[in-house]
C-alpha cells in the first residue's frame, strides 16, 4: 500500500495541532464522524486537540459528556453500530481502567459476537506517557493491555505528520482503534501536509537508516532513539531507527528486513518492561530471524514501578537518551 502523501504543501505544526487538523479533515469529509469526550467541546480538550471544532461542526457532532468513561465508550459502541464513526477522547490512558469492559468485552468483540453482522468503526483517542510530573495515575503507558485483545488495533504516533495521517486512517478504519498519543509530544513541531493526508495502519517507518543495529521503538522513545542514534554516529556506530507507528497490526517485514541487515536488535519503549510489547518484537525476531542475529535481542524499557511524582525519579524510570546509547554500545561492542 502506498502512502497517500499530499502533492506539495506542508506547514510546520504542533503535534496537537496536527491531530486537530486530522479531526477537522475527517469531520468535513464524512458526516458520519462525531466526537465525544470530557471537556472537548467549548473547552477544546485538556490538551487543546479539539479546540475550534465545536464552532465549525456544532454540538451534535462535537459533544461534551459528563465524567463517565465507561458510559462514553459504551455510547460510542452503540453509535458506531448504527454506522456513525465516533471518535472518543479519554483524557488519560490511565482512565482506560474505568472503561475497560466496554473496550475489551464490547467494542473489540461485537463484530465477532454478532457473527459479522455489525461493525464498530470507532476510535478511542487517549494520551499516555510520563515526563510531565503527572505521577502514577496520569502517566502510564498501557499499550500492552490493548495490544493483547483480539479485535482492537493500536496506534501510537511519534511525529506531527504521522499523528495527522494515522488518525485519519484510524477514523476511516472499520474496526475499533485505540489511538494513544503522548502528552509530551503535543508541543513538538514538524512539517505536516496541509491537504488530505492518510498514513495506512500497519506500515512502520524507518526514521533513520543504519547498518550496525536496529532500534525498534514507538511514541516519544522514537525522539529519544533518534537523539541517541546521532550520538552513536559520533562514535562511529550506525543505528537504524524503526518507528513501528502501529502496534496492531504490526509491520513485521520492515523489522525483520532491518534485523537481517544489521544483525542486532534493541527494542525501546517507555512502558514497563515486564510483559511489555517489546517482548512481542524480541520474540518475533528470535522466532523468525534467529540465524541472522549476532547478539541476543535486547529490550530497554520502563522499570517495574509506578511512575513517581518527583521529576528526577520520573526520568530514572523510563529510558532516556543516554540509556539508549549505553544499551546500543553494549549490544554492538
Amino acid at each position: 500500500m502506498q502512502l497517500k502523501e499530499a502533492p506539495s504543501a506542508t506547514r510546520e505544526m504542533f503535534y496537537a495541532e496536527a491531530l486537530g487538523d486530522a479531526l477537522r479533515q475527517e469531520l468535513r469529509r464524512d458526516e458520519r464522524v462525531v466526537i465525544f469526550g470530557e471537556d472537548i467541546a467549548a473547552h477544546g480538550g485538556a490538551f487543546q486537540v479539539t479546540a475550534g471544532l465545536l464552532k465549525e461542526f456544532g454540538k451534535d457532532r462535537v459533544k461534551n459528556t459528563p465524567i463517565s468513561e465507561n458510559g462514553i465508550v459504551g455510547m460510542a459502541v452503540g453509535a458506531a453500530l448504527t454506522g456513525l464513526r465516533p471518535v472518543v477522547e479519554l483524557m488519560y490512558v490511565d482512565f482506560m481502567g474505568l472503561a475497560m469492559d466496554q473496550i475489551v468485552n464490547q467494542a473489540a468483540q461485537n463484530r465477532f459476537m454478532f457473527g459479522g453482522q455489525a461493525r464498530v468503526p470507532m476510535v478511542l483517542r487517549t494520551q499516555g506517557g510520563s515526563g510531565r510530573g503527572n505521577a502514577a495515575q496520569h502517566s502510564k503507558s498501557l499499550e500492552a493491555w490493548v495490544a493483547h485483545v483480539a479485535g482492537l488495533k493500536v496506534v501510537m504516533p511519534s511525529t506531527p505528520a504521522d499523528a495527522k495521517g494515522l488518525l485519519a486512517a484510524a477514523i476511516r478504519d472499520d474496526n475499533p482503534v485505540i489511538f494513544i498519543e503522548h502528552k509530551l509530544l503535543y508541543r513538538t513541531k514538524g512539517e505536516v501536509p496541509t491537504g488530505e493526508h492518510v498514513v495506512p495502519l500497519g506500515v512502520a517507518d524507518v526514521k533513520r537508516e543504519g547498518s550496525d543495529l536496529t532500534i525498534v521503538t514507538w511514541s516519544r522513545e522514537v525522539l529519544f532513539s533518534l537523539d541517541a542514534a546521532a550520538k552513536l554516529a559520533d562514535e562511529g556506530i550506525a543505528a537504524e531507527v524503526i518507528d513501528v507507528r502501529t502496534l496492531v497490526p504490526l509491520d513485521r517485514e520492515t523489522i525483520l528486513r532491518s534485523v537481517r541487515k544489521t544483525h542486532r536488535l534493541l527494542v525501546v519503549h517507555e512502558a514497563v518492561k515486564r510483559a511489555g510489547y517489546g517482548a512481542e518484537i524480541a520474540s518475533l525476531v528470535a522466532e523468525e530471524a534467529f540465524d541472522d542475529l549476532d547478539a541476543p535481542p535486547k529490550r530497554l524499557a520502563g522499570l517495574e514501578t509506578p511512575i513517581p511524582y518527583a521529576q528526577h525519579l520520573e526520568k530514572s524510570v523510563v529510558p532516556q537518551v543516554d540509556d539508549i546509547v549505553h544499551a546500543a554500545k553494549g549490544l554492538v561492542g
Binding site: 458510559g71 455510547m75 459502541v77 453509535a79 453500530l81 448504527t82 459476537m113 453482522q117
Partner: peptide
C-alpha cells in the same frame, strides 16, 4: 442480534447494554 431487524444484544455482562442504547439514541 439481528442488525437488519435493528436488534442488538451486546453482552452477558450486566448493564453494558444501556450505554449502547443511549448511543443508538444519540445517533438518531
Amino acid at each position: 442480534s439481528d442488525v437488519k431487524a435493528k436488534m442488538l444484544s451486546g453482552s452477558v455482562h450486566i448493564a453494558t447494554q444501556f450505554p449502547h442504547a443511549v448511543g443508538l439514541a444519540l445517533a438518531a
